[in-house]
């Protein structure tokens, strides 16, 4: 039973307490560029969640059962970027062929996920910190759902930002960054929730 609790704990920790965007800085590029349309940022977030989970599931055994016994652990970055890039292309192929509706909302964002720092960041830090499979899966799940949460919340805020009269020099990205700072402070308040491990 406590396995399940530990799993849940790890998910909530990496989702809220140690949010990937606001405290570990993975995935800032799409986070800053998130568009105001909540639907498209939701689509982007879901695509990233799907790719991160698949990447974590593939990268962990690839590192521990293929690279480490072969004595070439230093090839992890090359292997991960190949896994993530081919995952993104395969998912894209699948969506292009079988569900045009999904392609309509998700289409242009898919090639961007390859260059999303969050996906490679999570896979790389899972094995750097030597987490077990269940822990890294929980970490991947929590991180990606945290990313989705932040992206959607931020795109809602962007809608209000556009209509507010910010000073001319702050229009656009600077005010978005200041808002992100306030969100980071808010999420820092969650630090006391509980500590992982």
């Amino acid at each position: 039973m406590n396995m399940f609790i530990a799993f849940l704990l790890a998910i909530i920790t990496s989702m809220l307490v140690d949010n990937v965007v606001l405290s570990r800085f993975y995935g800032i590029c799409p986070f800053l560029g998130v568009s105001k349309k909540v639907k498209s940022s939701l689509g982007m977030g879901v695509a990233v969640v799907f790719v991160i989970i698949l990447a974590t599931v593939i990268c962990w055994p690839l590192y521990n059962y293929v690279l480490v016994p072969a004595g070439i652990p230093y090839l992890d970055t090359v292997a991960y970027i190949l896994v993530i890039a081919s995952l993104v292309q395969l998912v894209g192929l699948f969506i292009k062929k079988y569900s045009p509706g999904l392609y309509k909302t998700l289409g242009i964002y898919l090639p961007l996920i390859t260059t999303n720092c969050a996906v490679l960041g999570v896979a790389q830090s899972n094995t750097d910190q030597g987490l077990g499979f269940v822990e890294s899966l929980a970490n991947g799940l929590g991180t990606s759902v945290g990313f989705l949460l932040i992206i959607v919340v931020f795109s809602c805020i962007r809608v209000r930002l556009e209509s507010s009269n910010t000073p001319k020099a702050f229009k656009g990205l600077p005010i978005a960054l200041i808002t992100a700072a306030i969100m980071a402070i808010a999420f820092m308040g969650l630090q006391g929730l509980f500590v992982r491990g």
Binding site: F25, K168, A169, F170, L173, P174, I178, A180, A181, A184
Partner: peptide, 19 residues
């Protein structure tokens, strides 16, 4: 030194450049 500070510094620098 915390992430929030990084966002603020980056935002302010971009604002100065835009100004």
């Amino acid at each position: 030194q915390t992430p929030a500070g990084a966002f603020i510094v980056f935002g302010l620098i971009l604002a100065v450049l835009a100004f």
